[in-house]
């Protein structure tokens, strides 16, 4: 693995204390060309994580604060009539950046949400008949508050599926919290951060992810996992083929981060919670369990072939 990727991780870990797993998962997501959904309470560092990643990776960063009156044009941009040259001129919206932080995505109306999600899916936007490509790399980190909070439009399952992973930040442990409280203001540090990587290097890494080997034995394992979710009684639906592809590419990225050129079952197990968490739903007697338990039980139920 490139030295710069190591530096990225190191730098991020210095700012976001006690969350190495989340940082790695976010990077995995980025390398696998997926998008990331962070779901947690306000104030646990979702925005900071996005910001740090953008700065460290040297990506153009835009933040879109989702509110209930946000319109698609606020995201995508709008054409404005210019008096001087008597023409409409397109003013690109915040979506035209390499890294987007869509903050509190579940506070916006479904209309605004789908504008973002379509752009994520297509890697391009069509406004007034003109298709405009989005920059590359293009990476969206969306954050959302747990949906039971008042005034939210929870993303439907079909749109959750567009995110490669959904992770939670969780509270920091005691030591990290102490570091946070006693240290310098995070915002100041972020302002001073220097990019550790060129965006071309990032694109090259994304290409390398595709070359990571997934042996037949490993594919057997992934298929066994998929089959189990489809056959076991506790899940409302089994995992889709798209979820299987997501699982594989995330595991490849994870293997790359681990400096390996082949995927091993441990990689799959490491990314499995993030990848399937928002795609699996327990039913009946199992629905009271939280999803973490559900995924852990999934891992334990499937033997490695």
């Amino acid at each position: 693995m490139s030295q710069s990727l190591n530096n990225v991780i190191k730098q991020a870990e210095q700012i976001i204390l006690g969350k190495p797993q989340q940082i790695r998962l976010a990077l995995t997501c980025l390398l696998a060309r997926g998008h990331l959904l962070i779901e947690d309470l306000p104030g646990v560092g979702k925005t900071t994580l996005a910001h740090v990643l953008a700065c460290t990776l040297g990506l153009q960063f835009q933040r879109i604060q989702f509110t209930s009156d946000l319109l698609p044009a606020d995201i995508l941009g709008v054409s404005v009539y210019q008096r001087d040259n008597e023409k409409f001129e397109f003013h690109p919206g915040p979506i035209f950046a390499q890294m987007i932080l869509a903050d509190e995505v579940n506070r916006a109306t479904p209309k605004a949400q789908s504008a973002l999600l379509e752009a994520m899916e297509e890697q391009q936007v069509t406004i007034e008949g003109t298709t405009r490509a989005l920059p590359a790399p293009f990476f969206v980190i969306a954050t959302q508050n747990p949906s039971y909070q008042v005034g939210t439009f929870p993303l439907p399952e079909s749109q959750l599926d567009r995110f490669l992973m959904r992770i939670q930040m969780g509270y920091p442990d005691a030591q990290a919290e102490r570091g946070l409280l006693s240290g310098v203001d995070r915002r100041e540090i972020i302002a001073r951060l220097s990019p550790q990587m060129e965006s071309t290097e990032l694109l090259a890494l994304q290409q390398r992810v595709k070359a990571v080997l997934a042996s037949p034995a490993l594919l057997d394992y992934i298929q066994a996992i998929l089959r189990h979710t489809r056959e076991a009684a506790r899940y409302a639906h089994g995992l889709s083929p798209r979820a299987g592809l997501a699982l594989l590419s995330a595991a490849r990225a994870w293997a790359l981060l681990d400096e390996r050129d082949a995927v091993i079952p441990e990689d799959v197990q490491a990314v499995l919670p993030g990848v399937v968490n928002h795609r699996l739903q327990a039913i009946g007697e199992y629905s009271k369990q939280n999803n973490g338990t559900l995924v852990r039980e999934l891992i334990e139920a499937v033997a490695i072939p």
Binding site: I264, P265, E266, Q269, E300, A301, V302, A303, I304
Partner: peptide, 9 residues
Amino acid sequence: RAAHEGAQD
């Protein structure tokens, strides 16, 4: 070894 345990772990 647990059935779901990979070689590395």
